[in-house]
Structure formats: C-alpha cells, structure tokens
Write a protein that binds this DNA or RNA. Structure first.
Lengths: 154, 154
DNA sequence: CGAAATTCGTTGCGAGCGAGACGATTTTGC
DNA sequence: GCAAAATCGTCTCGCTCGCAACGAATTTCG
C-alpha cells in the first residue's frame, strides 16, 4: 500500500469547470451582438430584457427578474438613462422606489436585439435534436436546484 | 397588420441566460469548498489543479490547461507563491519561461481539495441517470463548439 | 402614535480585472 | 550571423465590481 496515493484529477472532465467554460463562451458569443454593435453590457441587456417583457417595473423587480443584484441594476440603469434608453420616476405608492420605463429608443433597441439574440440561440442549439434539447433542459433545472440548495445550506 | 408588432421575449427561457445563471450558481457552490475553508480563489484552484495533474508546467501551459489568460495565471501564481504552495524557477531550456512546481504543502492542499470537489460534483449530478448524463455531456460539447465558432468568426 | 427595525436605491472605497506597454529572451528569415 | 518579429511573463493604468454604509421612506410593534 502506497503511503501517498496519487490523486488523479482532470480539470477538463470536472463538470463545474466545463460548465464555467461553456457559459463563458456562450456569454461571449451572445455579447458580441449587443456589445459590439450597440455598446451595451450584459447587465444593461438584462435590464432591457426585463423592461421589454414588463415595462414600468421597479428596480427591485428587475433585480429579481434578471438575477442581478440591486447594485448592478442601479449602475446599469444609470448608464441606460444617460443613453436615453430608460427613464426613472419616483413611485407615488412607495416613494423609496423608482419606476423604470423604456423610452421609445429603448423599445426600438430592444426590438432590434431580440431577433438577433434568438437567432444566436437557435444557432447554438442547432446540433441538438428535440429529445436532446428536452434532456438538456431538464438536466439544467435539476442541477440548478441542487446548486442552489448547496449555496443556501452553506 | 399591426405596424408595431410586440416582440415577446422571456429572459427566463433564453438559453444563454439560463446557462449563465446555472454556471454562476454551480461555481459558487464549488467555490465554497476552497474559498471558505482554504482562502483560495477560483483562478488559484485552477492553477493548483493544473499542477496537481502535471507538476512542473510553465505558466504558458497552465494558461492553456486551465482556460485562464496569462495575466490571471501570473497573479494567481504570485499569491500561491506567497502562500508557500508553489515555487517558480527559470526554465533553463527557455529562460523567458518560469517552471512552476507545487511545494509539499501545495500538493497536500490539492489532495485535500480533490475529494471534496468530486463529492460536490457527484452531488450536483445525482439527480441525473446515466443516459441523461451522457446526453448532457454530448450537448455541452456540441454547444461549446458552436459558441467557439461564433467567437472566432466574429 | 412613535421609536425601532426594515426596505429601496445610491454611493464611497478598496480590491481585482483586463488591455496594452514593457524588458528579456528566443525564433524567424534573409 | 544578424536584424526584425514573435513569445514569455510582469507591470502599470484605468475601469469595474462588490461590500458595506448611507439617506430616505415605509413597516412593525409595543
């Protein structure tokens, strides 16, 4: 019996590593769309998407919808406002909150990006048949649930 | 025919978004291991893993092995060296390069982390049967190839 | 009703990151 | 063999990011 067993470990086969690399590459491939052409960051794109789906949300709701924390939302909105894509207005029902709304340019930009984004999504998944897509979908949900459980329970 | 068609778009169903959220959560769940207990960052863990698999690599090779750019490797190695986990030595065959080697403590730490990391990996995937894992595996490879194609071709 | 606790969004600060310049070395190509 | 180009790793600069503290407003609860 060897006293110091060698621990075999290949990073390239480690699921969390593979997932991180995949997500990084996919994210970059999609960010080319809004980044290169429209000078928008990922956080800004998510805010646009949130307001595109449900215009007139409070920053808090955008945070929940987009998995960005309140700071990221605050800073992204500041930039979007400066670019004339979003307006802020104090909510009369709760004067701490700011209601965010897409301007006409904001809506126009959103509607320009969406088809491009969906085309990229389709392209990325093109090699998968419907059954594979279904399995991937379910697998992602299952793993996500487990990961969130780990994070909550320390 | 409506002049302004509404573009329906749900961020929660957008594959790149779901993938990013999943990867973020998985990464965080794994980082709890080496982060909380051993004060190691993700980049440092990847360097450890690279050297654990193949001790005595040059920084350049670690970069390729771990998908970190040379800057991240340089900084991670600096911290690991200060912590006494890695040593740097000029390569005599190419005196620009530095050969990096795990110290005894470095190897010990690596061998302590690996089983924990593998346990987390197993736990995360526990809900998937072998067939699902196989599909997931293949799907990730296919999508990665597509994403990398997009990145290269602009 | 009123003080304490909570929530919303912003901001200041320190750490960390990426792009590009750099010195040192090696490789290329004439 | 030597000048030009490429490569290795580090460093610097500017920017971004996250933590924590904050002011303002609201909710809780005695």
């Amino acid at each position: 019996m060897a006293k110091h067993e060698v621990v075999p470990f290949a990073l390239a086969d480690f699921f969390p590593y593979r997932l991180a690399v995949l997500a990084e590459n996919v994210s970059q491939a999609v960010a080319q769309l809004y980044g290169d052409r429209f000078q928008i960051t990922r956080a800004e794109w998510r805010v646009l998407a949130a307001l595109g789906a449900n215009n007139g949300m409070a920053a808090k709701d955008i945070s929940a919808y987009s998995t960005l924390d309140k700071m990221q939302v605050s800073r992204a909105v500041a930039r979007l406002e400066e670019a004339g894509l979003v307006t802020r207005a104090t909510d009369d029902a709760d004067r701490r909150a700011k209601i965010l709304t897409l301007t006409a340019s904001g809506r126009a930009l959103f509607q320009k990006i969406v088809p491009l984004a969906q085309a990229r999504e389709d392209y990325l998944l093109e090699d998968l048949d419907p059954q594979e897509r279904a399995v991937l979908d379910k697998a992602m949900a299952k793993v996500l649930a487990r990961a969130q459980g780990l994070i909550e329970r320390g």
